[in-house]
Amino acid sequence: MSIEVRELNKSFGVGTPFEKQVLFNINLQIEDGEFVGIIGPTRAGKTTLAQHFNALYVPRAGKVLVDGKDTADKHTDVSELRLQVGYVFQNPEHQLFKETVKDDVAFGPEKQGCSTQETDRRVREALELVGLDYQTFYQRDIFALSGGQKRRVAIAGVLACNPRVLILDDVTAGLDPRGRDQILEVVSRLHREKKLTIVFISHSMDEVARLTSRTIVMDEGRLVMDGPTTEIFLRADELEALGLELPQVTRVLRMLHREGFSVPLHLPTLEEAVEAIAGALSSTGVRNRWN
């Protein structure tokens, strides 16, 4: 399911003293099955842009086509669209509104008209996908969940609708490292197993570097970079100028490079970086644990 954005401009508060343009001439295309990251400083317009993908915002200037259908067209069934393009919000407190986990996750399938059996099957599958054991959690009160668990329930609730696109808006914000890793593992698995198109909005360059194959960089309502993740992250100076903090691994490699060590600057994983650094150190005669 592809998403196409043409000449999108968006303003808030049109006609009030607080009118402000937040998106300027956005053009992009996301193909079926891509794992795209959207990064940028706060207020760059990432969420506003992403909320056009499931027709929460409908463009007045420009066009947004999801699966070939114009979101601004009156004949497009937006409710149907919103079930196909799942959106997980940053704060699960806004998204969860039923009392128990089961009821909340079942909400989507029930809305879609699924039978009790089908709903049950989907709820089980969704909970398993996010790593929550059905037996343990299905009766649990929403209020009795931890932040990370709530987030996973929110994702499960969206997954239960069988979407073809998944938009994750800053889903790791405010989580401890373990909770974060759990979520990221879930997301990664979803892309691998279910072949969903994933749009991943994040403030963490580390996460985007780790998971995505394509990165879009936004700043002040404009699309400033769009390309393969490895290439984008090579433009470290530009990214830093935008106020973005490079992934930790990249920063260390750059520091070493500046000091004269021969280490590659492209984006490796932590393991590769460790090897490269060990190699560079051994060539200077410094002994370390790895050689």
Binding site: S79, L83, Y87, F89, H94, F97
Partner: peptide, 19 residues
């Protein structure tokens, strides 16, 4: 503002507020 976020989150799961 918060109500707006909540409504959007529910709209995103298929709740129709305008029909």
């Amino acid at each position: 503002e918060e109500l707006e976020k909540i409504i959007k989150a529910q709209m995103a799961r298929g709740v129709a507020f305008d029909r």
